[in-house]
Each structure stands twice: as C-alpha cells, then as structure tokens.
Computed example of a mutant assay.
Amino acid sequence: MSTGAQLSVPDMRRSTRCPVDHPVIAEHQARGDVKMHLCNISANGFMVDDAKDLARGDRVIVRLPVIGRIEAYVMWTKDSRAGFQFERIIRFEDFGEMIEALQPNPKLRRPR
C-alpha cells in the first residue's frame, strides 16, 4: 500500500503567478518546522526556491497573510525549487488582499 498524499496533477499552469519575496515557516509532519522562501504564488499554490529534502507528496502547513493557515502538497521538485498545490483554491478577493500584503512595492502588483 502506498503512503502519503494521493495527488492529481491538474494543468494549473494557466493560473496567474505573482512574484513574491516572502519567508515562511512551514510545519512538516516528519521534519517539524522548516524555513522556506516563497518566490511566487497563485490562487492554486506556490513555489519555493530553497527546498531542502522535500519530495513529491510531502505535506506542509504554512501561514499566509489574510489566508491564515493552509495546507499544501509538494507537486514537483527540481534542483533547489519545489512547487506546492494548496488543499483548496484561494478565493479571488482574499488572494488580492494577500498579494497586497506580500508585495508592498506597488510596481509589482497586478492592476485590478
């Protein structure tokens, strides 16, 4: 019997990803608290550029502005990067507020 998350790999590449520069502390079931750096985020997930010893299917819980605690699963890893899919899609209004909190530089924000 397989262990870990049973993940589907939907084609979410059309989701708008916003560049961010945000450190988080993720709760990992086996490794405890893990420091990660979010480099982009969408309503479906995020990417970190400093993934250490993460594997596809690993589950983490992160705390994001506006959203609060949310669970995410590793969908892919390559070199030092990893892509995560949220357990649920973030609502449009909440996503917009979160991006404003994560991107204090107005030049990085998407026009509404």
Rank of each mutant, 00 (worst) to 15 (best):
M98R: 01
R81C: 14
G68E: 07
Q85T: 13
G96M: 05
V74E: 01
I70S: 06
E100M: 11
A101D: 09
M75T: 07
A82G: 02
N105T: 08
I70H: 05
F92N: 13
P65G: 09
D79V: 06
R63G: 09
L102H: 03
F95G: 02
R69M: 10
L64A: 03
R69G: 05
G83L: 01
R81P: 04
R63F: 12
I61H: 08
T77A: 06
R88G: 08
V74L: 06
I90G: 00
F95S: 00
R91N: 12
V74T: 03
K78P: 04
Q103L: 09
F92M: 09
V74D: 01
G83N: 01
F95W: 03
E100Q: 12
E100W: 09
Q85E: 15
L102E: 04
Y73T: 06
P106Q: 05
E100C: 12
E71W: 03
P65V: 14
W76G: 03
A72M: 03
E87C: 14
I61V: 15
F92L: 11
L102R: 02
P104Q: 06
R69T: 09
I89N: 14
W76P: 06
M98E: 00
A72V: 03
M75I: 11
R91T: 06
I70C: 05
R63L: 13
F84Q: 01
P104W: 08
A101Y: 07
R81L: 10
Q85C: 13
E71P: 07
F92R: 15
R81I: 07
I99A: 02
I90S: 01
S80V: 08
I89E: 15
P106V: 05
F86Y: 14
R69D: 12
I99F: 04
F92T: 12
V74F: 05
